[in-house]
Amino acid sequence: MNDDIVLTVIGKLLIPFILLFALYVQFHGDFGPGGGFQAGVLFAAGIILYALTNGTAAAMRLIPPGLLAPLAALGVLLYGGVGVATMLLGRHFLNYSVLAQDAVHGQHYGILLIELGVGITVAAVMLLIFFAFTSRED
C-alpha cells in the first residue's frame, strides 16, 4: 500500500493522546461514564489507527503480538485474583469491602483493579483479532 503523507503524520501525532484518553476513561470508571470495556476498546482503537496509517508491520513492532495473549490472560487473572483474594479474606467472591481498612476504600480499590483487568483483556483481545485478520491478507 503506497504511503500517504497526511495520514501517516496525523496518525503518529494523535496516538499518544488517544492512548492517554483511553487510560483516563479506564481510571475514571467510578467517577463518570466509562470503565474497563470502553477504555480497552479506545486503547486498541489507538493502536489500530496507527496500524491503518503507518502499516501493520509498524504496529506489530510497537506492540509485539506475542505479548498480547499473555496480556489477555493477565487481565482475566487480575479479575479472578481479586475475587479469590476477597474469598481468602473471608468474604464472598468479589466482595471488595475487605480490601482496605474501611469498606468504602475497599470497594474503590476493588473496582479499580477489576476494571483494569477488563481493560487489559479487552484491548489485548481486540488487537489479537485485528492482527489475525490483517496479517492473513499481507
Binding site: 501517516t8 503524520v9 503518529k12 496516538i15 499518544p16 493522546f17 492512548l19 492517554l20 487510560l23 483516563y24 479506564q26 481510571f27 496507527y50 503507518n54 509498524a58 510497537l62
Partner: peptide, 20 residues
C-alpha cells in the same frame, strides 16, 4: 495513576516511527 498513564503513553509515543 495520571503520572503512570502519561508515562506509559509517552513511552509508547517515543517508540513510534520517528522520522516524522
Amino acid at each position: 495513576l495520571g503520572l503512570a498513564s502519561s508515562a506509559l503513553a509517552a513511552w509508547i509515543g517515543t517508540r513510534l516511527e520517528q522520522s516524522d
